[in-house]
């Protein structure tokens, strides 16, 4: 072998380049609202999942304190039969978050695959798939979900709500992913993979989806916010989570008559819904800006 081929080329890098993840992280940190929101959201998650371990009451406990306003013993007060509202909000947040995450997961996986396949194959298949997306998008989500849930599919388990709402939110994800894939498929590395003999499944799973990951993470985040609100709406309508279990939506629904007499029962769970939806939206905004390469470049 001749000298050039054999000698390792130890070149110093012309300009220090950062990993994309590092760049994204830096840009995200610069988005103050997003960082604050992320912190708040983490606190909410800790409250919901670690809180019950530390708090003296469980959401099923019935105390002797009836209809108390917030105090040191019951920071969020109690309801008519003596449930500690803070314990209920903890459980409610847990359930709502769980459902919202499941909605986001189902919607994102389905939507990402759907969008990637449509974008990669193009042509008639793409046309057909995207018309289906259009149709699903025109459905009034909550009305359809309520109608389906009212049939008692899945026996009103928490996951049945997630499946129903997930099945209605994926079109948003698929539109975004298809757009990204349409531009990715023209890149040379996709053609290179083809030249190596890679089939479509490999191209989708190994190349297209990992490269669309930024966009997918962003829409997934926003889907969580939609999920929280969707669950709340369904539970409010009485077709979501059923007692004795609880969720934020259900708490608001049960206590809506108490809004004037015992406002703490209504406002605390309501506050948590708003808090989660808002913080996640801000985090999503921050992520979108961080992944967008058209943002102010960190390096030249």
């Amino acid at each position: 072998m001749s000298d050039t081929a054999a000698r390792p080329v130890t070149e110093t890098f012309a300009v220090r380049e950062r990993k994309q993840s590092e760049l994204v992280f830096r840009r995200f940190l610069r988005h103050r609202a997003a960082v604050t929101s992320l912190l708040l959201f983490v606190l909410v998650v800790l409250f919901a999942y670690v809180g019950p371990l530390l708090w003296k009451y469980s959401y099923t406990d019935i105390t002797d304190d009836l209809s108390r306003s917030p105090s040191l013993t019951h920071p969020f007060g109690t309801d008519l039969i003596g449930h500690d509202t803070m314990a209920q909000v903890m459980r409610g947040t847990q359930q709502s978050l769980k459902i919202a995450l499941a909605i986001a997961l189902i919607g994102t996986v389905l939507g990402a695959l759907w969008g990637a396949i449509a974008g990669l194959y193009r042509g008639r298949l793409d046309f057909l798939m995207m018309r289906i997306v259009d149709i699903v998008l025109t459905l009034p989500t909550i009305a359809v979900a309520a109608a389906v849930a009212a049939q008692g599919v899945g026996g009103s388990q928490w996951w049945s709500i997630a499946v129903i709402l997930g099945a209605l939110t994926w079109p948003y994800v698929s539109r975004v992913v298809r757009g990204v894939v349409l531009s990715l498929r023209e890149q040379e590395f996709i053609e290179a993979a083809r030249a190596l003999g890679a089939g479509n499944p490999r191209i989708i799973l190994r190349h297209l989806l990992p490269n669309a990951l930024g966009a997918i993470i962003v829409v997934a985040t926003l889907t969580i916010a939609t999920g929280i609100l969707g669950e709340a709406a369904l539970s409010f309508l009485g077709v979501g989570v059923q007692a004795p279990d609880t969720s934020l939506g259900l708490l608001v629904s049960i206590n809506r008559d108490a809004v004037n007499t015992r406002p703490w029962l209504f406002y605390f769970p309501g506050l948590f819904i708003i808090l989660i939806a808002l913080t996640i939206n801000f985090v999503g905004d921050g992520l979108r800006d961080a992944f967008d390469p058209k943002q102010t470049r960190v390096r030249q």
Binding site: E11, T12, A14, R16
Partner: peptide
């Protein structure tokens, strides 16, 4: 006859001749 290596980073240029490496 190629020149081995590549141009230096223009950040924190080391002392001496930039072509030295």
């Amino acid at each position: 006859t190629p020149i081995t290596g590549s141009p230096p980073s223009l950040l924190n240029l080391p002392a001496g001749c930039p072509f030295r490496p």
